[in-house]
Amino acid sequence: MKHLNHKKHGGLSTLLEFHYTPKHASWLNQVEIELSVLSRQCLERRIPDIQTLSSEIAAWEQQRSSPKGKCQLAL
């Protein structure tokens, strides 16, 4: 197994970006959950055109990403 030469490939680390993934869930599960939430909260009705769809999704995304979002756990 060859090792990367640090001098030659020193810029490689700037190309990598790490993202947190929960221990017991994959990124695909997270995407499926978000699409399910989008479908239930935003897309339950007929949307007449692509412009309206884009603006509705943008508004939903902004609200969803706001720091005021809370989670209620029932134990």
Rank of each mutant, 00 (worst) to 15 (best):
W60A: 15
P67S: 02
T21A: 14
S65I: 03
Q72T: 10
L4A: 10
H24T: 09
L53F: 03
L35V: 10
W60G: 15
E56V: 10
K7H: 06
G69L: 13
T21W: 00
K68R: 11
K7Y: 07
H9D: 12
L16Q: 04
A74R: 15
A59M: 06
Q72I: 11
Q72Y: 13
L53N: 03
L75R: 09
K70F: 11
L28F: 14
L12M: 15
I33P: 01
S13A: 12
S26H: 08
A58W: 01
N29C: 15
K2M: 06
Q51W: 00
S55T: 02
K68M: 12
K70R: 11
E56A: 12
L4W: 13
P67F: 08
L12R: 02
T14R: 04
M1H: 05
P67R: 02
R45G: 14
N5Q: 01
K70C: 08
P22S: 06
V37T: 11
A59R: 10
T14L: 10
A58E: 02
K70P: 07
T14F: 07
L4T: 03
R46E: 04
R64W: 06
N5C: 04
W60Q: 11
K68L: 12
E17H: 13
P48C: 03
I57A: 09
G11H: 09
K2I: 15
C71G: 05
Y20C: 12
F18E: 07
Q62R: 15
L15W: 08
A74I: 14
W27C: 14
A58I: 01
E61Q: 08
M1K: 01
L35F: 13
R64V: 05
R45I: 07
W60E: 13
H24G: 13
A74Q: 15
R64L: 04
S26M: 10
L4V: 07
S39Y: 15
F18T: 03
T14S: 09
G10L: 00
A74D: 07
Q30A: 14
Q62C: 11
D49W: 00
F18A: 06
C42Q: 05
S54G: 05
R45P: 01
P67K: 02
Q72D: 05
S66A: 13
K23F: 04
T14D: 07
S26W: 03
K70N: 08
I33M: 15
K68A: 13
L12E: 03
Q63T: 15
P48E: 07
N5P: 02
P67D: 03
L28K: 07
P22R: 00
A59W: 01
Q30E: 06
A59V: 03
E56P: 01
Q62K: 12
T14G: 05
S66K: 04
E56M: 08
W60Y: 08
C71A: 14
S36D: 15
P67H: 04
A74E: 10
D49R: 01
L12K: 01
G69K: 13
H6M: 01
E32M: 10
I57C: 05
W27Y: 14
E61G: 11
P22I: 00
L75E: 11
H9E: 02
Q63D: 06
S55V: 02
S26A: 08
H24F: 09
I47N: 02
R40G: 12
Q30K: 05
H24W: 10
Q63L: 09
Q41N: 11
K68Q: 13
C42A: 09
